[in-house]
Design a protein around this nucleic acid. Sequence first.
DNA 1: GCGACAG
DNA 2: ATCTTGTCGC
Length: 238
Amino acid sequence: MRPARVHSWNISPDEATAIQNNLREKVVVSPINKDIHHIGGTAVTFNTTNNTIHAALSVLSYPDMTLVEQRGVSQEIRFDYISGLLAFREGAPLMSLFRKTDQDMDVVLFHSHGQAHPRRFGLASHLGVLLDVPSIGVSNKILVGHHEHLSEEQYSESHIVYDNERIGAALRSKENTKPIYISVGHKADLSSSTELIKKLVKKYRLPEPIRLSQLAADQQKEGRQVDMKKKRGQTSLF
DNA sequence: GCGACAG
DNA sequence: ATCTTGTCGC
């Protein structure tokens, strides 16, 4: 997948913030219109002793949810973690993952926030704009904003409000389990994003494309080969 | 000043 | 994120 837009990741926090304020103007909020056949999901894990970041991409066919392709990559960490600037810590390895495949993806899920961000431009929006692909942010916890109390039943949900705006949704993906937080990345809207995520949650709290990538990222971290692609019923390893 | 703070 | 035992629940 060729990025539609690029910029350096080797910059200062101030420059990073400026880039966010510029690129946020490129975000498009609209229903995910086209038919969905393939869904991408990413995840990363770190090894602080190595100063290495490991990232993985999984592509599932939809709605059968079959794993079609998986990619892994490891890079040196070169940007300290700063709340609100996560995209600059994970952006480079994530972008290299997409460069490794020509697989078509109708929407990509990122383990992060999209518009539910202090400058309304979290990692999910950032990568969505650079790749020019519909994207959704799915996170374990809120970065900014608040929401009403959720009942314990599955699918109870409430909007995340920040600065008097609805920036995302808190969704109880599984009964009696901590909620997940969903927000628009790019070329999507909140209702269609939430409905899609519901369909991608199976036995676990997080949607399958992200969950499978977390497992793959762990394998990548342990030095195991992750790259694989299924073709005509066959599986190719690289 | 105090608390919050994606991964 | 990651460091970790026990423990509750299906």
